[in-house]
Each structure stands twice: as structure tokens, then as C-alpha cells.
Design a protein around this nucleic acid. Sequence first.
DNA 1: TCTTTGACTTGACAGTGTCAAGCTGTCGTG
DNA 2: CACGACAGCTTGACACTGTCAAGTCAAAGA
Lengths: 192, 192
Amino acid sequence: MNVIPPLSTRDRLIDAGLELLLEGGTEALTWRKTAARAGVSHAAPAHYFSALPDLLTAIAARAFDRFSAEMILARDRAGPNPRARLHGICQGYLAFAATHAGVFHIMFTESTVNRTDEDFGRASTQSYLILRDCCAPFCTPDDREELEFAVWSSVHGYAMLGLQSPDAQKRRAISNIPPFATLLEKILAGRT
Amino acid sequence: MNVIPPLSTRDRLIDAGLELLLEGGTEALTWRKTAARAGVSHAAPAHYFSALPDLLTAIAARAFDRFSAEMILARDRAGPNPRARLHGICQGYLAFAATHAGVFHIMFTESTVNRTDEDFGRASTQSYLILRDCCAPFCTPDDREELEFAVWSSVHGYAMLGLQSPDAQKRRAISNIPPFATLLEKILAGRT
DNA sequence: TCTTTGACTTGACAGTGTCAAGCTGTCGTG
DNA sequence: CACGACAGCTTGACACTGTCAAGTCAAAGA
């Protein structure tokens, strides 16, 4: 019989933090609330994380795992055509940014997150590799990095500008994708 | 004889906040420290700003003014050639992001900033117009928005990825610009 | 002269991250 | 079995944060 091992306190803390972030955005995520949600005292997290940046880093790493999963889902839904798959990845990227703004913020722009952390690096690299795989059909070894970075910069900038846009209309529009799709086609121009 | 009018307390508060941001990044900027730096009591700012987001918004607006000034400087240094001027603008953009990460963060990604504020809108639109002017020589009325958004997204995404990059090497590299320049040329491909 | 008003201070409050000390059950060793 | 070590967690305190209520005080208006 398969028994689900009970989650460690550390895991529960990370999950609790991610939940708070999903529910109430950046402001809802605090050291003490995370502890309370995980059912431990306000100082318990200190046993697993040296300080707040450490906790944030672990949460961001777990968020990248979910991010990867959502991009893969969007890619696979797009079918077998390489162009459609790349568009799908980007759509997944933009949809995630639009839906989970607080999480996206922690992942990419929160300055206290330690981006040299091993787990964080593994998780974020994993996300990058998903993008890379979808760019591969359009690259030669020579211009691989260039295309990857062009796509990555564009979709990321697009998501950011969408998030900071004052009118919600525009914000919703970024997950409708048509305008970004034309930008992507520009980058892919001349490639098969 | 020209007398410089004494700065109002409100102006001193905004300047103080911007200074704190420039010196110590996002974490150094607090309501109370801003008040102290401006030489008033910790509750004085409440007379001019309803709450912290209000103050942050005003600081972000002033930051956009400086941002515009730096882009104009970079543009004018680039000489009269339209292509060189667009490259110059982008270089100014990336240099500002790399040098003043904390300020850049408040301007673009701090979620509590009120982006519907009138002053903020005026200041950020002004920055956008500088970019637009430099894109104009490469546009027809039909594809104006498309090119502007392509350039804007790319340079912004590029700056963001540079800021979040783990190794400082790469971070410095974003103001050296060669790799972004090739991306820009990709976007401009076929335009004169 | 009295009142009002704007600019600011003082003092308090709950909530924050962090640190120090103490408690408790488990485990390895004598 | 007894004892010490120790991980895991709690309690309590600290300085600091943003915010609010009340008070001070000088200038302006009636």
C-alpha cells in the first residue's frame, strides 16, 4: 500500500507562502503569516531559513516549478507543429504572468531573492530549457543564443509592460496574445 | 535678481525619497527615513501623501523625469543619424536600469505604485514619447504601434533579464550593449 | 480680539523580521 | 537503563515599520 509521506515542516512552509502569494499578492506574504498558515509558531521558520530572503528564494524556486508545468501544458495543448508550440509556450508565459502577478513578481523582480541559490537556479534553468527546446527547430548552432534571448526578452518585456499597464483592459489583453504573436513572427522572420 | 524659491516640504520629501532609493535601494526607502531625511517628523508626510503608495507614486513620477533626461542625453550624444539615435535611446535605457536598479524597480515593477495617478502618467508618457520620436523615422502610420511596442518590449525585457541575472558579469554587460544592438537590428530589419 | 485653518509634532498602536532563551521528545553512547 | 546531545519548536522580547488621533503653534480672516 502506498502511503503518502507527511510533508515536512519546511515543505509546508514553502507551500503556505506560495498560497498566501497566490491569494493576496506580495503584501499578503509575511514571515509570520507563513508560519501561522503552516501551523507553527512565528519563529519556527528560522530553523529552516536563515532569514526572509531565504524563504522567499525557496518559494520562488517552487513557483518556477509550477511555471514550468504551466508552460509545458500550454505547449502540449498547441499540438505537434513547432511554430504552434513556440507560440503556445509564449501564451503560457503571458497567461501565468497575468494570472499570478504576485508570484511572477517574486520569481523575477523581487530583489531580495537569492538568485545564486542552487534550488532556485535549477528551477529557473528548467523553465529556460523549456523555452530553448521550443526555439531549437528555428536555430542553427550559431544563432541559437541570439534567437533564444530575443524571444525571452520580448515575451518577458511584454509580460512586464502588461502587468504595469494602468488599464485592466490592456492587462487582460496580454493573454489574448494576437499582438504578441505578430512580434514573435517578426523575430522568427526568415526562419522555417 | 533671481531668487531660488525654497523647496516646499512636499518637494523635499520626494527628493529625500529618491536619494534614499539611489543610495540604498528599495529597502532603504521607508516612510520614516524619508521624513527624517527631509528634516520633518515621522508623521509629517501624512499631510501630503495619504499613505505610502502615494509617496512611492510621487517618487516614481520624479524618477521618470530623470529617466527621460538621461535618455535624451544618450540620444543627443549619438548624433543626428536616426539609427544611431534609436540605439542611443536604448543604451540610455539599459544604462539607467543597470545603474539605478532600485529606482527602476519602483518605476516599473513596484505593485503599490498607483499607475493611474496623473503626475505619474504624465511623467511616464513623456518617457514613452521620447522612444516614440526615435522610432518614427522607421515607421509608416500603419505599423507605428507595432514597431514601438516591439522596441519597448525588447529593451525592457532585456533590462529586466539583466537585472535578475545571477552573475554580475552579465549585469554589467547589459550596458555594453552589443548583444542588444543585434536584437534591435533584427526588429528594424527591412526598414530604412 | 477671537476664530479658523494649515503645517507640523508627539505619542500611541498593531504588525513586522529577528534574536535569545527555554522546553521537549528522540537518539546514540556509556 | 541512564545520561547527554541535539533537532525541532515555542515563548518572549527587541527595534523598526506604517498609520492614526490628538495636540501645538503661527498666520490669516472676520
